[in-house]
Simulated scan of single mutants.
Amino acid sequence: MRVSVIGGGTITDDQAARAEAVGRELGARGHTVVCGGRGGTMEAVCRGAKAEGGTTIGILPGERREAANDYVDVPIATGMGHARNALVPLNGDAVIALAGSAGTLSEIGFAQIFERPVVGLGTHDVPGVRVVETPEAAVDAVEAADET
């Protein structure tokens, strides 16, 4: 399945380690990562997925595919700025939300509009987001949601 992973562009070392662990778990289980394609959470999750042989898609805010982080396999330039936040959850079968700010919150909202299951791991407290405690539990939860 395709799993959109959302989170901040500027994150702490602990948040980066968590995002990378999510990416590793997704890659090890054969899932494709969809993200915003830039730095922070997006780079860490892609790095983790690639370490396990996974595939990554980056939906970029700008017009240049070259702006993607080094771990994105398929960069998609949109030229849409923050409006591209709608496209990240739309292109996943489910969403894992990590720590972030307003952009992450907007992506959670779009995920719910598009009726994608959202699993939260250290993210915003939003109704409808299933909260889990570990990267493994996050991937378990999106896999279980895909089976329903």
Rank of each mutant, 00 (worst) to 15 (best):
H82Q: 14
I96K: 03
T55M: 13
F110P: 05
V139K: 02
A111R: 12
A17I: 03
E52R: 14
A21G: 00
V118T: 01
R2G: 01
L90V: 09
T10L: 12
A51C: 00
L121H: 04
G58R: 07
V126M: 06
E107L: 10
A97S: 13
V33M: 02
G7N: 05
D146F: 14
N85K: 12
D13L: 13
I96G: 11
E20M: 11
A94M: 09
G36H: 08
T123M: 10
T56Q: 00
T55S: 13
A137T: 09
A19H: 00
N69C: 06
T78I: 06
I6L: 04
H124I: 10
V126I: 15
C46N: 06
A99S: 14
V5F: 01
E43D: 11
N91R: 08
E107Y: 09
G27W: 06
R47A: 14
T104N: 01
M1H: 11
S101G: 15
A144C: 10
C46K: 01
A44F: 08
T32H: 07
A138V: 03
R116K: 15
G54Y: 08
I76L: 15
V139Q: 00
P89I: 03
G79A: 09
R24L: 05
I57S: 03
A28E: 12
A99D: 00
R38M: 15
A141W: 01
A49T: 02
D14L: 14
V139Y: 01
C35W: 07
P61V: 04
A68N: 04
T78Q: 11
Y71R: 00
Q112S: 07
A68G: 10
A16C: 02
L121A: 03
C46Y: 00
P135I: 00
I57F: 01
D146K: 14
A83V: 13
T134P: 06
A102L: 14
V33P: 08
A21M: 08
A21R: 12
A144Y: 02
L60C: 03
M42I: 00
L87C: 00
A51R: 03
T78R: 12
A67P: 04
G103N: 11
E20R: 15
A77P: 10
I108S: 05
G100S: 07
V22N: 03
T10D: 13
A94W: 03
A17W: 02
C35M: 05
G109K: 06
D146N: 13
V126T: 12
F110T: 05
A68Y: 05
G62F: 09
L98T: 03
G58A: 06
T78K: 13
T10G: 08
G37P: 12
V142F: 07
E52V: 01
H82S: 14
R130G: 00
D140Q: 09
I96F: 03
V88E: 02
E107N: 09
M80F: 15
G53L: 12
A44D: 04
G92F: 09
